[in-house]
Design a protein around this nucleic acid. Structure first.
Lengths: 344, 344
DNA sequence: CTGAAAGCGCTTACAG
DNA sequence: CTGAAAGCGCTTACAG
């Protein structure tokens, strides 16, 4: 273990700077800066000399200096509930695939589904003066709302659309519509005693379930006893447990809507263990249509949500605004698709 | 949609700065800075006046200025193959849980399992002058290796340990040992005609499989025909396909090692469809022991890898080094555990 | 416990 | 196409 610490906290030591490159290539710092950022505005010979000097010196530009002088950070802040969630993985990939090629860095943080953690995270991120921000959901603390308004940077609220106006822009789907669509599908298939399983119970899960129940109620088939929810994070294991509990109280159910595919996997596994035939004795449906849902036995009926596209679209909206464009549409509903398979 | 652009690219406009806070609270900028970063070195009255001014003005510190002046960025760069991978999710969570409370920001990027993308990502990250870096694996391009050496920041190479010395520090497990352990387990259980399924085939998958095959070879039970791999990313669907192909060429197999749990899920589902009894007719084992592995039917025998702890330990090693500590141990082997269940 | 001065490494705005 | 000057908003190093 040799010493690799570069004396953090001290004044910089022999770090190669723009001026070093300028000196070596016999031009001004200004010109080196242009050769780097707007190469077409510099003559070819100069550009070549500068490039050689950069290689020879091993020059690495300093983004902090660039941000400070240029008054823009080339950074996008992304606030999501949890990186370790298959749903947000896909969203992040969509954001990343747009931001990275455009030269924007992503600053990412987790709220762990807590409004309070969201607030402190956003405050912290604001100290980076990101050029734009993406946050999850339309609900946030009033103080945070004010901070974001004061920051006056382009902002996209993702995942959800329709429950209230975004602070600036939004892209997502209507979760209550998606829940309602699943309820209608189940009613059409003739199910009568329909249960609901929910975990995490963030705002979007709540709206999913509410949309589902509202349709059942219209059909006179709603029953509070058949709804089982918990604030615990959604896992496969939890799906099995919740189904067991639900069946204990309601042995006569003929269908169950799980507000998440993870839960649905667990519910199907539990049915396998109990030799309950899905969907003949009990139909099961999920939400989000994750990768494994087409492969499980029976294959899972679910709601396909455009996760990757939500991320991609959000990032694109940000990029366009950062390029000075004025967007016609500040709210984008990407829609969902009910994927009917064998389980319901 | 009102104008929220704060004229990026222009000189700053009426942004509240340290000096504004200093003026309002009647102290020097220096003192405000201290009140912010080392509150205990400032008298209580001054601290209070400063805090009031900060609130009144809505002051948000500028990290770019702080980095530039202080010669440290309070940022950790994290380079992983893919955020949308359950394995790395857990690792990231471990890193995050250490870095966030310590006041470090995470800069995260994907290599998509490409050495070339890794190189360009690391170059890009270096322009942020991160205080430390975490990268996946021990293998990297020579040019990147040189760049990292020149940067002279603390570096932890994660996931893998033992194949070669790290550039600076490393934490992970031995993938060939893990593969070998699984092979020994299968031999002990009496399986003779053992197949192998691999996807992605990054260095670590390769070593897993090599370790597995070496043990089979010692027992005189290795057979190239029984090994089926692909560079495609590992998915549940792919697991089913690969198993089908493998059985076509080797109808007599009595066990299959999947170098990933995703593949194993797909393989089990495929067996269910074909009414092949697991493990009686065909044993199946996976790798990584993801959340659902205990719940699937039959429950999956797998290798439990300390993903969260790898992330957490890597971040802790970095934090200690950044605090000036000299670590006794620069290579940490966190070990694995064979989780025997019903499938093999 | 507090402060005046200098400087971090870039880019903007203005010239020519 | 190229450059000299000023400044971005902080912190370091040195005093007192």
């Amino acid at each position: 273990m040799t010493t690799r610490q570069s004396q953090p906290g001290s004044r910089s030591k022999g770090r190669v700077t723009l001026s070093d490159v300028a000196r070596m290539s016999g031009v001004s710092a200004m010109t080196v800066s242009r050769a780097l950022n707007e190469p077409q505005r510099v003559s070819e010979q100069v550009r070549e000399r500068v490039e050689q000097a950069i290689d020879a010196l091993g020059y690495i530009p300093n983004r902090a200096a660039r941000s400070l002088a240029g008054n823009r950070s080339h950074t996008i802040a992304v606030v999501i509930p949890s990186v370790s969630n298959a749903v947000f993985n896909n969203v992040i990939r969509g954001i990343y695939d747009v931001c990275a090629p455009a030269g924007y860095e992503m600053l990412m943080g987790n709220t762990y589904y807590s409004v309070q953690q969201e607030s402190s995270l956003i405050s912290k991120f604001l100290t980076h003066h990101p050029d734009g921000m993406i946050v999850t959901g339309l609900d946030m603390a009033d103080s945070t709302r004010r901070q974001l308004e004061a920051a006056a940077i382009p902002l996209v609220q993702i995942m959800e659309v329709g429950t209230s106006a975004p602070l600036d822009m939004s892209v997502g789907i209507s979760h209550s519509d998606a829940g309602a669509a699943m309820a209608r599908y189940m009613l059409e298939r003739g199910y009568k005693r329909i249960g609901v399983l929910g975990a995490q119970m963030d705002y979007r899960s709540q709206r999913r379930i509410q949309g589902f129940i509202d349709v059942l109620a219209e059909a006179g088939l709603a029953d509070d006893k058949r709804v089982l929810t918990t604030a615990e994070p959604s896992t496969v294991r939890l799906g099995g447990q919740l189904l067991a509990d639900l069946l204990l109280a309601n042995p006569d159910l003929d269908a169950v809507f799980c507000c998440n595919d993870d839960l649905a996997y667990g519910a199907i596994y539990e049915c396998q263990r109990r030799h309950i035939r899905v969907p003949q004795q009990l139909a099961i449906a999920g939400f989000n249509d994750l990768e494994g849902s087409a492969c499980i036995n029976p294959s899972l009926t679910s709601i396909q949500t455009p996760l990757y596209d939500i991320g991609k679209t959000a990032a694109q909206m940000l990029m366009r605004r950062l390029a000075g464009e004025v967007l016609q549409q500040s709210v984008v509903d990407l829609g969902f698709r009910l994927q009917a398979r064998d389980s319901a």
